[in-house]
């Protein structure tokens, strides 16, 4: 005998479950797009141009972030790469405070990266890695070069490349040598960029 039973319809997927899934997706998306930029991100391309106007609100935010950056807890020990890197930070900050540089979006972004990357080093955090700070310093010098010193393109590109090859440690003789060479090159480029560009 043929039978066709019927059944109660299954309840549809709970709308609350859908809402929860949407919330999770939004949270993940927000985290992905709003996470802090890594300090060792690639240097800006050679033809990068500043996209943010000088009087944009982000300028104030950035300035506030800079002023809120912790000051070094103590005078950096100049004998190691950590100390020499921290010694580079004040002249780098003075450099990018120049009128023609401080409002450039790329320079500002790289400066923020440097501040962020060296903050833990300045606090004396032994676990803080050197590499983000070294890479950020190279990227900042590169950004300044692209903004105002086209003649230093080769030196800046080499410095960024050199930074990318660093291990971030300063333990072995080879690592110390690599860090020393990089910091010397960075100091030389900083010196060259300290001279106001010729019109």
């Amino acid at each position: 005998m043929t039978e066709i039973p019927i059944q109660r319809k299954k309840p549809p997927l709970s709308p609350w479950l859908l809402v929860a899934l949407a919330a999770v997706a939004l949270t993940l998306g927000a985290y992905w797009f709003l996470r802090p930029a890594p300090a060792d991100e690639a240097a800006p391309p050679a033809n990068a141009t500043p996209a943010t106007p000088a009087d944009s609100p982000t300028a104030d935010t950035s300035a506030a972030a800079r002023s809120a950056a912790p000051a070094p807890a103590a005078a950096p020990d100049s004998s190691g790469a950590r100390g020499r890197l921290l010694q580079l930070v004040p002249p780098l900050s003075a450099l990018v405070d120049r009128a023609e540089l401080r409002d450039d979006a790329t320079v500002r972004e790289q400066r923020d990266n440097l501040t962020s990357a060296t903050a833990r080093l300045a606090d004396g955090d032994a676990r803080a890695g050197l590499r983000p700070g070294l890479v950020a310093a190279a990227n900042l010098l590169r950004a300044v070069q692209q903004k105002a010193y086209p003649a230093l393109d080769g030196e800046a590109a080499r410095l960024v490349q050199q930074a990318g090859q660093l291990s971030g440690r300063d333990d072995t003789a080879a690592e110390r040598q690599q860090n020393r060479q990089f910091l010397q090159a960075a100091a030389a480029l900083l010196q060259a960029e300290t001279v106001p560009p010729t019109p």
């Binding site: 039973p5 059944q7 109660r8």
Partner: peptide, 18 residues
Amino acid sequence: RLSDLPDFEVADGHPDVR
């Protein structure tokens, strides 16, 4: 009529012969 029972449907594994 089955169509008058919105909470019911033909059971899984059986054909709806409409």
